[in-house]
Amino acid sequence: MSVSPVYQVMTANRLTDGLAVYCRSDGSWSPDIALAAGAHDDAGREKLHLHGQQSAEDHHVVDPYFIDAVIADGLFEPVRLRERIRASGPTVALAALPSQAYAVGD
C-alpha cells in the first residue's frame, strides 16, 4: 500500500465573507480544497507563497498560510484535525433546519 506524500496547500480566509479558501494553481481562491494546488517542492511552495502574499496585499484574503495535506480518495485531506474541520465544516449538526441552510462557497 502506498502512502501519499505530504503536500503543502495555501489557505487563507476570504476578506469579504471570511470563508476558508484554498489557493488554486492560477492564483485564484476556492472554498473547495479539492480545487487547491498542492506543492511538493520549493519551487511550487514559492509560487503559492507569492500568490498568497499578492492576494493579501490586494486585500482579497486575510493571513495566508500553508497547511500540510495528503491525498485520500483522490482528494486533498489536511493532516491536522483543525484543518480537516476547517475544510469540511463543523463535525456536529447545525442547529438550523436543513431547509434554511444558506449557500456556502458562492
Binding site: T16, A95, A96, L97, A101, Y102, V104
Partner: peptide
Amino acid sequence: YDKGFGHFTTRQNVQFNWPKLI
C-alpha cells in the same frame, strides 16, 4: 444573514457563526 441559529455564550452574549464582513 446567518444559517438560522445563534449561540448564547457564558458571557451573556449571542454569537452568529457565519456573517459576511460586507
